[in-house]
Computed example of a mutant assay.
Amino acid sequence: MPCGQIPVLGEQFSHVANQHPCFSGEANMNHGRIHLPVSPVCNIQCRFCKRTFNKTEQRPGVTAKILKSETAVSLVERALELYPEITVAGIAGPGDTLASPHALETFTLIHQKLPNLINCLSTNGLLLERYADDIAAAGVQTLTVTVNAVDPVILDKICSRVILDGVVHEGVEGAAILIGAQKQGIRKAADLGLLIKINIVLIPTINGSHIGEIARTVKDLGAGIVNIIPLIPQHEFADFSPPDCFELALAREEAEKSLPVFRHCQHCRADACGIPGKGDMTIADLLPEELQTAEYKKMEQTFSHG
């Protein structure tokens, strides 16, 4: 399948996929998205993940502000005035979107006010099965799930802990809980009719030879496309080497034996806004000065790894 195309998943998906810059290479250059950083906490800890506040780093897990749901909706309306090419409202953190209620609250409001926008939710999948019906009811049409391994022994090397219903699970046990939840959640979301993309962080020395198995597994669960994300060395993996071009190409080839591969990922921030293939601003550039209040400072205090 040529680069940039997506699988033929039926007429109900064609409109969505062709206008989503994170699902289609062509849309990546012509359609915009806004990421709304309303989800402050996370329920797992990946060894490569370092979430923070700043206005400079271009990577996931970074935002300038945490927003309330109502403010996020107002910013979408303002962004549409500046970027009429925006077709997608996405929430990708900076924590997990299902670890707090803010993402679903935000999507519900957006769906009510701006029903023509494509709502896109990103999650680690731990609570996906639990909230799948709520996700669909909130008007979410596209879903991204990060699946870095389907073998608990491998995932244990990538994810140090899983927090489920207040209980901390570590080691292979925690990894197995996360994998099981991801599988059940992806299957349920697919049954509900969501278009599903799987993100895989490529760490050559850990899951480099495992990519094909991940792709085969998620295809059988109902996923439609895969995105291989090169490791950004940081946190516990600060001394790891990122994949080189050959390793990335090999991983994509392995995944593409099962599913189409999206090849235009920009390592977007949790507050990115604009057309990915043509450059970004952040929601901080859209936020009126009068909204920089102590309320946001209070919300930022909850920004943690759970």
Rank of each mutant, 00 (worst) to 15 (best):
G222L: 13
K219D: 12
I275S: 12
T63L: 03
G93C: 12
K219Y: 01
G4K: 05
A272C: 15
V140F: 05
E105G: 02
M281Q: 03
A149G: 02
L36P: 00
P115E: 07
P101G: 03
T123Y: 14
C268P: 11
C159L: 14
T217N: 08
L259I: 09
K278F: 02
H267P: 00
P7N: 08
T87K: 15
I196M: 10
G212H: 12
C159Y: 02
G274K: 14
V261R: 07
A136W: 08
L195R: 00
G279I: 05
L114M: 11
I154T: 14
I179T: 06
A215G: 11
I66R: 06
R187A: 08
D191L: 08
A149C: 07
V88R: 04
V167S: 00
I214W: 04
A223E: 05
G279Q: 06
T302G: 00
I229W: 06
H305W: 02
L178P: 00
Q45D: 15
I154E: 13
K188I: 04
I163Y: 03
I196Y: 00
A27H: 12
F246Q: 14
G306H: 06
A223D: 10
V8D: 09
Q234K: 10
T146A: 11
K183N: 04
R187H: 08
S39G: 08
S24C: 15
L195G: 08
I179F: 00
G10Q: 15
R47D: 06
F262G: 07
S258R: 06
V73L: 15
H31N: 06
G139F: 01
Q182T: 09
